[in-house]
Structure formats: C-alpha cells, structure tokens
Write a protein that binds this DNA or RNA. Structure first.
Length: 826
DNA sequence: ATGTTAGTCATCTAGACAGCATGTC
DNA sequence: CTAGATGACTAACAT
C-alpha cells in the first residue's frame, strides 16, 4: 500500500509523504489502514518501538482534520509533547495547525480551540476536561501514545479515566491507541471498542543476545566473539567492540542502561576511557565545545563531571541532570558526537535516542516495597532494547544483556528474550487514584450519584478486566466517605455534589489529600491568629484538625510575620551559607508548653506544609540526616503549621523530617544559596532542585487559591512564599526579581549596588546599573526596557567600576572573576 | 618506613505529571 | 521468600 492510495488525507499530504521517502507503508501501517484508521475507525496498534507508530497516528489525525474534525494526541511526558509538536508541524503547509498544552508550556485556551491538532500530556488533558475547555467537545479523534502506561500505578489511572471521559463526552470519538507489544493488547482493544493491529515487524532488524564469557550469544543462535580484555569489564569490551565495527566508515554508538544514578555516572566515567581512544581531532574539538556548553549550564558538581565525560566522548543521563544537560547530551548522541550514554530508565521512555547497540547492564533494581533487588519487567527491558537500531544509519540494531555465569545467562534468555511481555493491568481500584478521580468525576458533572459514579467507572479498563465489581464499589465508598468528611463532597439522599472547595480542589488538580493537609495547616495557623484576638477562654477551634490548635500558643500582636530576613544581606560573608536568618520575633527559642511563643506563618512553615503533601515527592533521608533534621525540628518547632507527630510515631515522624529536609532545600533556594551548594548539601542534582522548586511553586499557588477561597489571613504570606520560590530570592528582592530579564543573581547585584526596587531602577544612574550587570549593555538595556524606563539606551555609558566590584564581591560563585571586564557577551 | 593488596564494612538505591496569570508612569 | 555495587577504611604483607 502506498500513500497515494489513501484518499482521505488532506490534498498534498500523500505526495509529501512520498517525498519524505515513504513509498510503501510498513506492514503494520497498512494493516491499520485496512482496519480503518484513516476512515475514523478506532484502532489499537501494539507494535515495537520505531516501527512507524507515529505515522499511524498521523494518518488518523490528518484524515480526521480533512473531514473537518479536530484531533488530540496524548503523550506521557512533556518532553515528548514538544518532540511530537515539532514533528507534526510539517503538516502546517497543508493547513493543519498544531498546538501544545502542558503544565509548562501553555498556549491559551482560545488559541487551542483554533488548532486542528493538539498535543498534550494525559494530566493536562484531564485538567482541561475538569476545567471545561470548550474545544474538548469538538474532538473527533484522540490518539493515546504509549497506552501500556495505564499499567502505571501512579499515572495510569489518569490516562484511563481521561480516555473514558473523552469517549463519554463524544460517543462517536475515534480512539487510536499506540502501545508497545504487551501481553494483552486484545483486552485494551476490547475496552476501547477498537480493532487490534498487532505485529512484531520492525523496519530495522533487532538482534538480541546475552554476553557471557567471551562472546555474545544471540537468540537466533549466532555468536559474536567479544573477548573481555584484562582489567576490562564486559560493558567496556562491548562498547569498544561496537565502536570498532565500522559501517560506512562509522563506528557504532552504544546506550548502556544501569540501575542507579551513581552507577550511570561511574559507568560513564569508565566508558569515557574507552571512547576517548577512538576520537579524531575534529570530534575532540567539537566535544570540547560541547563540554563548555555543559559547564555553562550550572556550577554543580554533576555539571563538571558530565563535562569531563563528554570531553572524552561519553555521557551519563539521569533525572538529576538539568533539562538543558539532558537535551545537550541527547542531541550530541543523535549527532553521533557522543559515542556512549550510560543512563537510568529516563532514556528508555523518553525522547527518541536510538543507538546501534543497547547494553542492558543491570536487570535488577532496588525496590523498597519489594524489599530488595527486583528484576525489571520484561516490558521495561523490551522498551530499552527497542532503542537499538538507528533507521538509515545501521543495518541492524543489537540489544545485549550481560551475564556473569551460565545460570544467569539462561535466566536472562527465559525472562527477557523468549518471554512475552507482561499484560497491562489497570491500577484504578486503589484509594489514592480513586480519591482524585472520584472527586473530579463528580465535580465536572460526569456523575451525580453513587450509581452514576459506578456506572461511569464501569467504562474504564479496570471494569473490563475484573469480575469483582464489589471491590471497586467498596473502594469507591471508602473514598466517598473520605471526601465527604473533608468537605469536598456533599451526599444528600442518593445524590452527590461537589462543594465549592471540592470544585476548586478538582480544578487545581490537587490530590484531595494534599488539599486537606494544606487546608488543615492553614486553618490551624488561622485558629492561632484568632486566639490572639480573643481571650483564651472563648478561643474556639476553627480548624478541621482540632488537635492542631493546641500546638500554637497565644501572644504578640501581629497576625503573621512573613518572610525570613536574608542573612546579613549575604554580601558580607560572601553568601557562605546564604541561609535565611530567623524571624525577628522568633529567635528566642520556645518555652515548651508554657506559652509565650509567637506563632507566625513563615515561609519554612509553608514549604514544609506543601512538602508533606502526597503531591510532593520527598527527599530521602540519608544516614546522619535523621539527627540533623531532628535537631532542626526542635529548633523550628514553632514554624510548622498544623499538628506535628511525636517522635514516637515512627513512620509519621520520619516523614515529617524528610518533608523538613525538602522544606529546607526550598528555603535555601529562596535565600539565594547557589545551586551547587544546594546540590552538595542535599545530595541532589540540578534537575532535582528544579523539580522540587517547580512542584513547590505549583502547590503554593494552589495553597494561595485555597487560602483566598477560605478567606484565611495567610493568603499574603502564601503568595510571598510562592514568589520567593518562583524567583529563588530573599524577601527584599521580590520586587526586582519580578522584572523580566532579572534573575536571582542580577537582582542581587543591583540590590548590592543600592538599587532596591523597580522605582530605583527607573531612576538609577546608568553607569551603576551597567556596572552591576557586569557591563553587559544589551542585558542592561533589555532590563531597563522591561522595567519601563523611558530611556533604556546604554549608548556611550561607561560602567561604574565601584558598583561592579561591590556587586561581584557580593555574589558568590559568579561566572566572571572579581575584576571588571569590558566584554559584552549577551 | 613506605607502598601494595586483599578483605571488611557501611552506605545507598528510577522516574516526573499538575494551577494561574503575565506586563506600565 | 527477596540485593549487591561502591568506596572508604584497615589489616596484613612485600619491598
């Protein structure tokens, strides 16, 4: 079958496909067409990675648009959303507009309504449905990429419920589900009332095998001699072997999957020795430039370590990397500059990074719940192996597992090479998942009674997979109870309605349990504030958590003291610690139960509040941390909002402490501590810092909304805490840091130069501004423009050396030396 | 005295979605 | 039921 046989695509598209080199559809694609993907029929395509799934989706979406419809492409990751958008944008010349919507990158609602194809993450789609985005009703085609992720216990239910909702809103909806090869694609197809297209066909041959002794034993019976040299390990030998096998003059790149970040970094360091011996002068030069770019991204140790590997032609890849690091590494790997990446599973599910050879070094991974090293799922290993084979570059791909002994080799063959991947199983009938989705389902009007709810849930994959209806009903009832007790739902007679706050929680996309925690914490603070105004006798509990009230005490006059003073304006001690000082009214220690402590809402209290929420993935307590944070806990006891567990409640106390660790990270961030210092202090990478900050920003935003809606006094304090996290600055920089073009560092330098507010900036002497911004004219002009200065031009202005020197001394770890330089690099 | 090696012990563990609202004397 | 690589530290031993 050829593209020109497809009559339902927009005019010009078949020709364009042929120009791209698609002369003949791949067998699975042809099969999908026969099943009617291009005619509005629902299809589940369960085929290997890189065998043309995207084209199947494109045929569905383009023909839907040609019929006057609108298509949605659901992805599991934000990074994939931008990748797909870029890919689909080539259809714009045929009149097909593409839009993206993720939490990060939001095109506004109305604009999206005008797009023909929209790419979004499943959570974003869920959120859009909850918020009643009008264009959802216009959808005629939905593509769900990587549907096998419905098996994921955390995010799977969202996808499942979202698909059910979309189908309910629009009964004629075409659903195209793209899946890796799984054990039960037929069940997924049944659930979606779709035709099943199943195939093992791959455009590039994939050879899979196990390395043991001095050879790779492939599953087709062939062998490849790969001796392990003295002092070398299996991985080294295999990476070297791939590089030494020149095809069209090019050595092959390798992707090594390992089970921890540390292993990824360690392996990359060793592989760098292998790759560095096989680079030509040009490559060495390019790699040096790349390494410089990497060092430019951040000052953290990871950055330096990565740069050192990259200089030698290898790299590591895991979630601790800043996203800039990740894309630099991915791009360089695709450009064949970086010869080997050692990665955690980030890369298996992420953007497209094919390699000639994939080495799955570790096939077990630590799992706390399991209580030890757990073998990876067959599906997961298959996903990794599927990265082997670069279309157009390699004649075939190789995926190799490593065995140290015969028994292991046999086990690997059985478990991963000969085995069918697992069946996907819905994880919907778990309380955390239902808590969220039951509330959302009621709040957005998909159900108005318990029966209606169960009826809706009956449209999910879970229902289609289970015989035990009672279980779902039982969990649902527990969840309904929880939601009612916490004031998110009303049950009257048989009918269910969301309360005002319930609606808000649903729209904010919060886990109801997070919302309850936040509300409890804020109300406990409120109750304390209340007690300041009333005599202790008629103090009454306004909080849900009555016990929380006792934690606070009377005193003082002020309702709330907000924000930490930045320690000694950080210039004096060169930002050595950067940690915020204690609040003025708060340094005198706490007088146990005797009262006399002033209860205030501090940023730390709020950071802790959101950090102990189930929506925040907490930092892990390392050895020694327990003592550190226990001490910190007692020192800052008065800042916590709500009722702290006693140290005898083991699990709860431990969680409180790890939330404290997370909160301290946020506090450090909001006190302008340098990224590398934070990374060092908490044992995390730049990527983790950004992740925490990002989540905190979102949760504090939600807390702000809740606070406002409940008319609590803490709203202002929450807003300020949120902004401090958002900009990563101390209280006194909030005004300045809001200006576009001014980050935490520049704002601090301006402040040190005596420019403390936007108003100051509009009046300030240009030489001083220029000096504080290190003589970067373009930057200075842009900043002045953004702050609304009438005459932003820096022409002929010489920077004030004094301001520059002062500012430079004030900010630790700056990119230029202490002396003034005159370059303009902006 | 100094360098080398083998053995012991404690430490630590993958990933990543979401709200809101944008600016000015 | 169900961990194991890593790196710091140490003891024993060779030069």
């Amino acid at each position: 079958m050829k593209p020109s046989d497809l009559s339902t695509l927009p005019p010009g598209v078949p020709e364009a496909l042929e120009d791209e080199g698609v002369e003949e559809l791949y067998p699975p694609q042809a099969e999908a067409v026969e099943a009617g993907v291009a005619d509005g029929e629902s299809v589940v395509a369960s085929v290997p990675t890189a065998s043309g799934k995207t084209l199947i989706a494109e045929l569905a979406m383009l023909s839907a648009v040609q019929r006057g419809g609108k298509a949605l492409y659901i992805v599991p990751l934000r990074a994939l959303a931008s990748e797909k958008k870029a890919e689909f944008e080539r259809w714009e010349e045929f009149g097909v507009d593409v839009g993206v919507s993720t939490g990060n990158y939001e095109s506004d609602g109305e604009w999206l309504a005008s797009r023909d194809v929209i790419v979004a993450t499943s959570e974003k789609v869920d959120s859009l449905v909850r918020n009643g985005a009008a264009w959802v009703d216009d959808l005629t085609c939905v593509v769900s990429d990587e549907v096998h992720l419905v098996d994921d216990s955390h995010r799977g239910p969202t996808l499942e419920v979202t698909l059910a909702k979309l189908r309910r809103v629009n009964p004629g909806l075409q659903v195209v589900a793209l899946s890796a090869t799984v054990g039960n694609a037929d069940e997924v197809a049944d659930w979606l009332d779709a035709d099943l297209v199943q195939s093992d066909w791959r455009p590039i041959d994939l050879k899979t095998g196990v390395h043991y002794g001095n050879a790779v034993n492939f599953d087709d019976g062939s062998q490849r001699e790969v001796p392990v040299g003295t002092g070398e390990k299996q991985t080294e030998s295999l990476v070297a072997d791939a590089l030494d096998e020149r095809i069209d003059g090019q050595g092959g790149s390798s992707l090594v999957f390992v089970n921890s970040r540390r292993n990824a970094e360690g392996a990359a360091k060793r592989m760098a020795e292998v790759t560095s011996r096989r680079l030509d002068a040009g490559e060495k030069n390019d790699l040096r430039e790349l390494a410089a770019e990497i060092r430019d991204v951040s000052d953290a140790d990871t950055s330096e370590d990565l740069a050192r590997c990259v200089e030698k032609g290898a790299a590591f890849h895991h979630a601790g990397l800043a996203s800039e690091h990740r894309s630099l590494v991915e791009d360089a790997f695709r450009d064949r500059l970086v010869k080997c990446i050692c990665a955690t599973p980030t890369l298996a599910a992420g953007v497209n990074t094919p390699a000639r050879r994939v080495i799955v070094r570790d096939w077990k991974r630590y799992d706390g719940e399991f209580g030890g090293m757990k073998p990876l799922d067959t599906l997961e290993v298959h996903q990794m192996m599927g990265r082997a084979g670069r279309p157009g570059l390699d004649p075939y791909g190789e995926a190799i597992l490593l065995a140290k002994d015969r028994d292991t080799m046999d086990e690997l063959f059985e478990r991963y090479l000969w085995a069918e991947p697992e069946a996907v199983r819905s994880k919907l009938a778990a309380e955390p998942a239902l808590r969220t989705h039951v509330l959302a389902t009621v709040a957005s009007g998909f159900a108005t009674s318990r029966e209606g709810l169960l009826d809706f849930l009956d449209r999910t994959l879970y229902a289609s997979q289970t015989d035990d209806d009672a279980r779902l009903a039982e969990v649902t009832d527990r969840v309904l109870e929880y939601l009612e007790v916490n004031g998110f739902l009303d049950r009257e007679g048989g009918s269910l309605t969301a309360t005002g706050i319930g609606h808000t929680v649903s729209r904010l996309y919060l886990d109801p349990m997070s919302a309850a925690e936040i509300i409890d914490g804020l109300e406990a603070a409120e109750a304390d504030a209340e007690s300041l105004r009333q005599s202790p006798a008629d103090r009454q509990s306004g909080g849900r958590d009555a016990e929380g009230v006792d934690a606070g005490v009377t005193a003082g006059e002020t309702g709330f003291v907000t924000g930490n003073e930045l320690a000694a304006s950080s210039g004096a001690d060169g930002g050595g610690d950067g940690r915020g000082g204690e609040d003025a009214g708060d340094g005198s220690g706490r007088a146990g139960g005797a009262g006399g402590t002033e209860r205030t809402v501090t940023p730390l209290g709020l950071y802790h509040l959101v950090s102990r929420t189930p929506d925040m993935y907490q930092l892990y307590l390392k050895s020694g941390d327990r003592e550190t944070y226990e001490e910190e806990f007692y020192e800052r006891e008065g800042e916590f909002l709500g009722h702290a567990p006693s140290e005898f409640e083991d699990v709860a106390f431990e969680e409180w402490l790890s939330a404290l660790k997370t909160a301290r990270l946020l506090e450090d961030w909001a006190s302008e501590l340098d990224e590398d210092r934070i990374a060092e202090r908490y044992g995390v990478g730049p990527g983790d810092i950004h992740g925490k900050v990002d989540t905190a920003e979102w949760l504090l935003g939600a807390a702000e909304r809740l606070s406002a809606e409940l008319d609590l006094d803490s709203t202002i304090a929450v807003r300020e805490a949120r902004k401090r996290v958002e900009y990563g600055v101390g209280e006194e920089l909030l005004d300045l840091a809001g200006v576009r073009g001014l980050g935490r560092k520049r704002a601090r330098r301006l402040h040190e130069a005596g420019i403390e507010t936007r108003a100051d900036l509009r009046e300030a002497d240009k030489p001083v501004v220029l000096g504080a911004l290190r003589g970067r004219r373009r930057t200075a002009e842009r900043v002045l423009e953004n702050v609304g200065r009438k005459d932003p031009s820096m022409d002929g202005v010489r920077k004030d050396a004094g301001a520059s020197a002062a500012a430079t001394a004030a900010v630790e770890g700056d990119d230029e030396g202490g002396q003034a330089t005159f370059g303009d690099f902006s």
